[in-house]
């Protein structure tokens, strides 16, 4: 029995995936805790429970994500860029360009047939253009992140947002709320500001082939559709798994590759 795991500890959410013979048998997403170690434990426990296996059954586990160095139970750590590439290719076997918007980072990478990452680009500047940006904005609007994504479709006249700084953009949003601008137009403006920053990154790597998006923001339809308009290409959807766990899937797949060599038990 080749049971392996991947654990992705991000700044906003932590994810774990258990795989058996190339199939997901359990996964779990939690909101990250202050200590990555606790997040990792909780995410893995959830996934183990979902899969109905125990920690001892796992042959190999790779950790990734911003808190990867702090995970205690992993055999190895790998960058999330590599994991998302791997996970994306598994979810969409034709994917050649992957956009991953994380809590405080946005990365765009090109991948080959095996999901290996080629050229990639990541934003280094500011938290705007990241998942955290959307989270802050959704809080200001007093709605859920999922709802924020749906606002774009209903907007008539999206606002232009000062988009260089998350906190300043927040001030702008409050101002618009107060001056009576509709929540749809504000929401669409937020999604557009976000997409605008991501689009620059996407276009800068000159995307080829099918484009796939991973990370929690992939579920924000407003951002995805605005981004499609800005880059003039369709972003492929895949139903095989939740795009938010693509990094954990990639980690699990890499674990499986290891086990095929010489399987080792989890610490």
């Amino acid at each position: 029995m080749n049971i392996v795991a991947g654990c992705d500890v991000g700044s906003l959410t932590s994810k774990a995936v258990i795989m058996k013979n190339g199939k997901i048998i359990g996964s779990h997403i939690i909101k990250s805790k202050p200590r990555p170690k606790d997040s990792a434990d909780a995410a893995l426990d959830g996934a183990l429970a979902a899969a109905g296996v125990s920690k001892e059954d796992i042959k190999y586990c790779i950790g990734t994500g911003y808190g990867r160095e702090k995970i205690e139970f992993v055999n190895e750590v790998v960058s999330e860029i590599k994991c998302h590439g791997k996970g994306a290719r598994w979810m969409l076997p034709t994917a050649e360009t992957v956009i991953d918007i994380g809590g405080q980072d946005c990365k765009v990478m090109k991948i080959d047939k095996s999901g290996n990452v080629g050229r990639f680009s990541a934003n280094d500047k500011c938290a705007s253009g990241t998942g955290r940006f959307l989270e802050v904005m959704a809080n200001v609007l007093n709605i859920g992140i999922d709802e924020l994504g749906k606002l774009s479709a209903k907007a008539k006249e999206p606002i232009t947002l000062a988009s260089t700084c998350t906190v300043w953009a927040q001030a702008d949003v409050i101002k618009y709320i107060n001056s009576g601008v509709s929540i749809e137009d504000i929401g669409a403006g937020i999604n557009a500001a976000m997409s605008g920053r991501v689009a620059i990154l996407v276009n800068s790597v000159k995307p080829e082939g099918d484009i796939f998006m991973t990370g929690g923001v992939a579920k924000n339809i407003g951002v995805v559709e605005t981004l499609e308009k800005l880059i003039g290409r369709r972003i492929k959807r895949a139903r095989k798994a939740d795009p938010q766990i693509a990094g954990a899937i990639g980690a699990a797949l890499l674990s499986a590759e290891k086990v095929n060599g010489n399987g080792r038990k989890v610490k």
């Binding site: 960058s79 860029i81 590599k82 980072d105 080959d112 095996s114 990452v117 080629g118």
Partner: peptide, 23 residues
């Protein structure tokens, strides 16, 4: 210097060279 974010990029880059060499 933003060590964590920098490290991520460097690690991913080195993994990229790994993959290239494997290939």
């Amino acid at each position: 210097i933003d060590a964590g974010r920098m490290k991520l990029r460097i690690n991913a880059f080195l993994e990229r060279i790994d993959a290239k060499n494997d290939h």
